[in-house]
Design a protein around this nucleic acid. Structure first.
Lengths: 200, 200
DNA sequence: TTAATATAATTAACAATGTTAATAAAATTA
DNA sequence: TAATTTTATTAACATTGTTAATTATATTAA
């Protein structure tokens, strides 16, 4: 019987990745450390280093997973809409919902640790383009449907990105506006303001 | 001769505060630690604890100093303008300039460490209101001059705050858009978009 | 002025965390 | 089954924040 080394290794990696995911989703970055990850995975802290270069590697893997997860979440919540302005708004709302549900993931994406590694890291670049990738299709539809011109679409793209991350940053870091409901109402008003009123 | 205890203590505090300011402005948060602050101040690391509760206290003092400094910077750069939309735009540009000049201060204001302390801390609240306080007067002027209605002014206020912090966040963390000049052009376009074209 | 006391500063030490080196355990092969 | 390779664990080190113990300095009372 020839042991399947690759399968074994991939399982081991999986245990640590799953453990990291759970901590990040549950308690957030502050609670993440090598010993906590290893303990939850059922191994000693040093074992982790047999499968990953360092803790950051694990974090990056999770960031990529979360991006995919968030994208699916947004997709699932906007299936009934046609590409265009209304769907774009709903997509942004879904994005905001996802992050308020998992504040630790937002923190991970836009704050702290990303800092520690250089900006050229592919994961950092992917995060940078993340909200853009979510708005891309709808903006294209709006342009081709002559609802907006190209330049405005570009401004909307940037404004949406800043509005989403900005509002979440302030909401989570300083808990303002106070309470989820008030926050979502403000968010919706902001989105309407950026996306403009009916005009086509 | 009766020694002036208060003067002595205030001088000592000053040495540590100045040291902290220099490190934050120069090398940023990552380089800030108790031993570095104390060494630059010319004392042992433990001496710091005779004058400050902990490193965070020192950081908060600096945050407040930097807010005042930034406010003066903005004021100095917009003296020639009348209150209103044009000045508001210039004020935002000045704000962005200040933070690009001192990335460490931006990082300090909006990222990392603020996290570590609760959101109820008065310094956190002051940061939250910081951009609002800069835009307040001009927005009021725009409303009273019937250039915008109250609701729009409120939307502009939020959008400006998000745009400023959002663009800086992306620029500094991921160095995008590439280069200072391109960044400032994008920033100006964004501000124009948010503030709206001539309409009064 | 000098001994006693209070104040202030320093070194030693501890805890938490990331990481690596040395050792032990387990699995594989000859 | 012994030798070897692979994998996992414990020990250990570095960094950082913080506190305790110790030493040095300044102040006060005789």
């Amino acid at each position: 019987m020839t042991p399947n080394k690759e399968l074994q290794e991939s399982r081991m990696r999986g245990y640590f990745i799953e453990s990291t995911r759970e901590i990040l989703k549950g308690e957030g970055l502050k609670a993440l450390n090598v010993r906590a990850v290893a303990e939850r995975a059922g191994y000693s802290y040093a074992t982790l280093y047999n499968y990953f270069k360092d803790l950051n590697e694990l974090v990056f893997i999770c960031v990529n997973d979360f991006m995919i997860e968030c994208e699916s979440f947004v997709e699932d919540h906007t299936r009934e809409y046609q590409p265009g302005r209304q769907r774009l708004k709903q997509r942004m709302i879904a994005l905001i919902r996802y992050f308020t549900q998992y504040p630790g993931i937002f923190e991970l994406f836009y704050l702290e640790r990303m800092n520690s590694l250089g900006s050229q890291h592919p994961t950092a670049a992917a995060i940078y383009r993340f909200t853009d990738s979510l708005s891309e299709a709808d903006l294209a539809a709006m342009v081709s449907g002559s609802i907006t011109d190209k330049e405005t679409a570009e401004n909307i793209r940037l404004s949406l990105r800043n509005a989403a991350t900005g509002m979440l940053l302030f909401y989570m870091n300083r808990m303002q506006p106070d309470g989820y409901k008030a926050f979502m109402e403000t968010a919706e008003r902001q989105l309407d303001f950026i996306l403009g009123r009916d005009q086509a």
